[in-house]
Design a protein around this nucleic acid. Structure first.
Lengths: 340, 340
DNA sequence: AGAGTCTTCCAAAGCGCTTTGGTCTTTGCA
DNA sequence: TGCAAAGACCAAAGCGCTTTGGAAGACTCT
């Protein structure tokens, strides 16, 4: 059942039927009712391929997915997707993942924009002076950045959490508890979130005349193994840190294992705070010693970004407004006063 | 730059240019070269929206993503996606995720097929007599099932791993080591993979005149917490199992925690084997006691399924061939002879 | 009554491709 | 030499929608 057939049975032109269905004003309400009714009765659904050829609108939002044999997709992605999908569903939006060579995403961005394959895109895991942000901005497609870039000479719309504030608070708490040597087990140091977290820690330490030592900040892919290795290296020093801030729950698993392997205890020998993106399958309160965390649901962020993308597509949102969400600091058993 | 312009500058008809570019035979090789050359020089790329309206081909594969506030996307999905994306990239395929109400995926499947939004779909986490498989099959869109359904009265193409065989081997090993009471901490019991794994364990036990007791199989969402709870319940019995087979590494984390909380040890008091889907961020060899596993890379499965989908789209593959991959049993420190 | 303004509808022209159904040369063969 | 077959190309008709540029009729106003 296509528009032609439908308009034929209604003895109306395609123009009128199309307008009736799309809510244009120049059609009699009585006629509109008739049309809508007939459309529903015959299960008419406009062919999206035809519509997108005519209008350029796709009803899809895009994400360029970096791939490659050596590239691992962040498990956080799933949670983000849950939120995004949840919102997208209720607004009849689909998400198209365009896999790209991790080292050449530009080609893919250009393609999906030139081909008008999606109405909007989002960018995740941005880095300082992120080229994708600059690119997408000049290409002129609606977009939202999940996270922030830095050092770009223009504004852009983003939704981020207050990573610096979160880690500042975490570090400040540790300092208040008497810790004088902290370490930071961070994610990939090229990403803005990691930079912000380090900045937060440094700022908190500086406020008390302290600092992060040379080897006291580790920037690594967020795996359990890297958490273990980093912790092990830190704790085997003669002058080991008495507190660690850690960028992910998964790395924290490794830290806990290292602590145990070394015959130490939490929080007796080491205080630990990690960032929690809120996974359903791994919860900080279930660590052998309940883990203190800075918490922010990445799922909520996904939903929010879908919402903003939808708003931008329909023209309800414009401009370069960035929003920064506060992060909760949740104290549990893994922090205590510094050992004497 | 569109076809019209390109053909105009070449002083050829759109027909010929289109045919030249699409490799049809009725065009002079010399002409074809000219056309291809000019297309490249001017960066001509056929508009996919126009092409899909004309041909119905989209260059996209689809996945219906169950969503909802209470629905969690499996973290395995990310790894699967890595493999899928890696293959898709090299074949210029995109993946469209159509979020659907977890309780009504049928509407979405019907929509994406009726609208010709994708060329093929895959289905994951199938259950016995899975309605999606039946639906997609009657709808007539190319598809592959990742995993297997059961009790369907027709054949369908799938790629699965030998879950039954894997858990049969695992259980057999444990029995050989003298274990007489086993337990199974399984995933969601409504899914086929979980059924197969249970079957595998039961078969191995039966071969030695043993059986799984009433409460010795737990079917739960695969979270750390559920692993902990299940293990705790099992191990607190007076007649506790001396070996556990576990369906996921994440649950195994919980099992290990329970064992420790109870003051027991692995493998002294409990032998443990878990299934490993091969995550980059959590490895069985890094468990405090290296974990024996049944191992099968879900990432490879993703790539394979993309490959088969592409083959089906282009007509290279047809029929209902199912393939079952063997699973490696990797012995590490977490298994030992049964305690006396 | 005539001019202007709405209201309501329509025919037809896109959107940019593929594909059908030719036409006009060349070539092959008896 | 004549005729069929093959080769190389084209015009035009889709694909199914949206949107432009009217047009016809009803209404208002002077």
């Amino acid at each position: 059942m296509n528009l032609k057939q439908l308009s034929h049975m209604l003895a109306l032109s395609q123009t009128t039927v199309s307008r009736a269905l799309n809510g244009y004003p120049e059609v009699n309400e009585e006629t509109r009712r008739r049309v809508i009714d007939a459309a529903k009765r015959h299960g008419y659904r406009p062919n999206p391929s035809a519509r997108r050829l005519a209008t350029g609108k796709t009803g899809m939002i895009g994400y360029v997915l970096p791939t490659g044999a050596a590239v691992d997709i962040d498990p956080h992605f799933v949670e983000f997707l849950s939120g995004l999908g949840d919102y997208a569903r209720s607004h009849e939006l689909d998400l198209v993942l365009s896999p790209a060579d991790a080292d050449d995403q530009e080609t893919t961005y250009r393609r999906i924009v030139a081909n008008r394959q999606v109405d909007a895109v989002y960018i995740s895991s941005p880095r300082p002076a992120d080229r994708r942000v600059a690119l997408v901005s000049t290409l002129g497609i609606p977009f939202i950045v999940h996270g922030r870039s830095e050092g770009l000479d223009f504004d852009y719309p983003f939704t981020d959490i207050d990573n610096e504030g979160a880690f500042h608070e975490a570090a400040r708490l540790l300092v208040q508890l008497g810790h004088r040597r902290l370490a930071l087990i961070n994610g990939d140091g090229r990403e803005t979130f990691a930079i912000h977290r380090e900045r937060g820690v440094r700022r908190a330490l500086a406020a008390s005349g302290l600092a992060l030592g040379e080897g006291d900040v580790c920037s690594l892919a967020m795996t359990e193994e890297n958490g273990y290795r980093a912790a092990r290296r830190l704790l085997e020093q003669s002058d080991a840190p008495t507190a660690i801030a850690c960028s992910s729950l998964i790395m924290a698993l490794g830290v806990v294992r290292a602590v145990r392997d070394l015959g130490l205890t939490i929080p007796g020998d080491l205080s630990l705070i990690a960032h929690d993106d809120v996974f359903p399958w791994l919860k900080p309160e279930n660590f052998s010693v309940p883990l203190s965390t800075t918490r922010s649901s990445i799922r909520l962020a996904g939903a929010r970004i879908a919402e903003r993308l939808a708003a931008r597509i329909s023209g309800l949102e414009e401009g370069a407004r960035g929003e920064v969400w506060p992060v909760d600091l949740v104290i549990r058993g893994s922090v205590a006063g510094a050992p004497p």
